[in-house]
Structures are given as C-alpha cells and as structure tokens.
C-alpha cells in the first residue's frame, strides 16, 4: 500500500509526468480546480457542483449512462468495422463470420446491439426525467433543443445501423421506413432517392447507411454531446427538484 503510494509519488516527480499534467497532486481545491479546467475533456464539466446535485435522485445518472452507452457503442462499433464489408451479400456473411469464426465476434455484436437498444431507452428516459424536473425552463431552453437534436441523432444512428446486417429483419424494416419519407410532399421522392442512392434498397443504400452510421451521424453526435455538456455547466448545472418553486417531499 505505502510502496504503491511511494511509486506514484516518485512517478509524479518525473519530468514526463509533470509535462503531462502540469500540476501537483489534487490535494488542494486549487489543484482540484486545475484538474478539471486544465484538462481538455474534463473542462466540459463544472469545477464545482452543488452537493444536492450529487445525490442519486437528482439525476439517476440517466444522462451519464446515455453518454457511457455511446462510448461503449463507439468502442464496439470500431472493432466490428474491422470485420465488416458494406456490400451485398458480404455484409450478411460477415455476420455469420462474427458468430462462428471470429473470436469474441458474437460477444461484440451482442454488446453493440444491446447497448444500442439501451441507449434509445435511456435517451428517452433522460428526456422525460429532465422534462418532469422542469429542466427545459430558462436559462436552459437551448440545451433542451440540443437534447432534442441528440434524441433524433440517436434514433437515426440506431435506424441506419439496423440495415447493416442485411438480413430479412433489416431489409424490410428499412423498406417500410424509407417509404414513409416518400410521402413528404414534393421533396419526398427526391429525398428518398438521395438517401438510398437508387429507387430501391440495394448495394448503394447499404453503403450510404454505412457511411451515415459510422462517420456522419457519430460526428454530429459527438459535437452535440460536447455542446450539451458545456451548456449544462454554463446554464448553472443540472436542474434540482427545488429549483422551480415546486417544493415536493422526496
């Protein structure tokens, strides 16, 4: 125990460590503050939070869980990409390979699918929870709108991922979904043609959904997540139950 702490302490004094963190151990409030705002990732979070917002009942960690599911999805998704060809019928054969040939392939696919379903659940749950807490009220109006954007991105991400296994389930769910688009007045048919890259769901559609799923939509999601976190901090932290004059017993 002490030898472990000694090792850490010695590590802290090395020039390499000091070049990495540029601060001493986080034992004072000043260095603890630096730990947050001196770190490009953590600086999206506030330096201080109200004690009340640390209670489990304040958030149930719904937003955090949604974000962590996104992290799990990114990691598993990148790994799955290494064995996936967005082509017909290779895509389906890759699913079979993941199940029967690739080590842990079936586990990664299960985890990806499971986390995707869970993310949809948690993003809705988070939104409803924020709504009932009055989290959309000023000064947090804009962050609510960002949240709606993230909800839509989550649904699109899940939906584009749905086609990728190229099985019967995927094909017909996407057929029904994209035919809904064609009912949009005037622009419906051209929009569907652009999305699918053809008149029906084929190789072009698979490739387009793949690119949307792995690059375009995650990129927008990451940007909006960063804005979302940043604005939570800038708009005065999370909404507490007492905040909007609705004093209720816990």
């Amino acid at each position: 125990m002490t030898s472990w702490e000694n090792t850490i302490e010695r590590l802290r004094r090395t020039p390499v460590w000091q070049s990495l963190f540029r601060r001493g151990p986080a034992r004072t409030n000043r260095t603890r503050s630096v730990a947050v705002f001196g770190n490009i990732f953590l600086h999206l979070l506030p330096v201080k939070v109200r004690d009340a917002s640390l209670r489990v009942r304040a958030t149930y960690y719904l937003g955090s869980i949604t974000f962590f599911l996104f992290v799990i999805l990114t990691v598993t998704g990148v790994l799955l990409m290494l064995y996936y060809h967005p082509a017909v019928p290779e895509a389906y054969q890759d699913m079979k390979d993941l199940r029967f040939v690739v080590s842990s392939g079936v586990f990664l696919r299960n985890l990806h699918r499971l986390a995707a379903q869970a993310m949809v659940v948690f993003v809705f749950w988070h939104m409803f929870h924020v709504f009932y807490r009055g989290g959309y009220k000023p000064p947090r109006q804009f962050n609510w709108v960002v949240g709606v954007g993230l909800l839509l991105l989550t649904l699109f991400l899940s939906y584009t991922g749905y086609l990728l296994p190229w099985d019967q389930l995927a094909f017909w769910a996407i057929t029904v979904g994209t035919n809904i688009i064609s009912y949009v007045p005037i622009l419906g048919q051209p929009m569907r043609f652009l999305l699918l890259g053809g008149h029906g769901i084929g190789e072009n559609a698979l490739l387009r959904f793949y690119v949307l799923h792995i690059v375009i939509l995650p990129l927008f999601a990451i940007i909006l997540i960063a804005v979302h976190f940043w604005r939570v901090q800038k708009d005065g932290g999370i909404t507490l139950r007492e905040e909007h004059g609705r004093k209720e017993k816990d």
């Binding site: 043609f193 652009l194 890259g197 053809g198 008149h199 029906g200 084929g202 190789e203 072009n204």
Partner: peptide
Amino acid sequence: SVRYLSPNVLFE
C-alpha cells in the same frame, strides 16, 4: 453536392 449524391448509372 446534390448532383454528386444522385447516381447517374443504376444497376437495377
């Protein structure tokens, strides 16, 4: 961009 995104040859 829209022109680029609409394929000119389709194998249908």
